[in-house]
Design a protein around this nucleic acid. Structure first.
Lengths: 92, 92
DNA sequence: AGCAATTTGTTCGTATGTATT
DNA sequence: CAATACATACGAACAAATTGC
């Protein structure tokens, strides 16, 4: 029961915006927009892309981090954590 | 037979105000003022629009929630249930 | 990290009309 | 008649959650 990866935020929907965004990002990961171990769009990019406040974007990311879908590396970005550990991401 | 969606509250009518409002909202849903999954007017808006106390508005909403017409999401709003189409369900 | 705005959740007191005891 | 109970309605205040700035 995946959400629509191309959906936009509906501020009039029962689901809160941060949960909508979490489901959208989850669907985009499932679809393969970002491969495992790759960095997803930055918070600033997500803010601009979905027209949300940064606090709302950060909350959506927190949901997916809690679910083990993403992991955050300070000063680097937010990454997809399918099976890649946070320690192998310094191959820049 | 539905009530008049544009009716106002009659404090001198046999039907109590909260039941009048419940029937008005039900008629407005049937008419299509709010689509399924959409948020209806907030309690404060209904208070101002119909000149009722918030407790009375909440009681009207409770009636429709009981009937499965609406559902409430705390801190978000009151929404039209998906199973509340603009048509009756007599021949189900 | 703070503050403001919005929305529902809850509780209190007061009043009125109806019905019952 | 009086007293009580109940449902209804109004008003007010505060709590909690969410969002935006």
């Amino acid at each position: 029961m995946d959400a629509d990866p191309d959906a936009e935020i509906d501020h009039g929907a029962p689901l809160t915006p941060y949960r909508q965004l979490a489901e959208i990002i989850r669907a985009r990961v499932t679809r393969g927009d970002w491969a495992a171990g790759r960095m997803i769009s930055s918070e600033t990019q997500l803010v601009q892309e979905y027209g949300l406040a940064r606090t709302t974007v950060r909350r959506a990311i927190a949901v997916l981090v809690e679910d083990g879908i993403l992991f955050v590396v300070p000063q680097r970005g937010t990454f997809v954590a399918e099976s890649a550990p946070p320690t192998d991401v310094d191959d820049a």
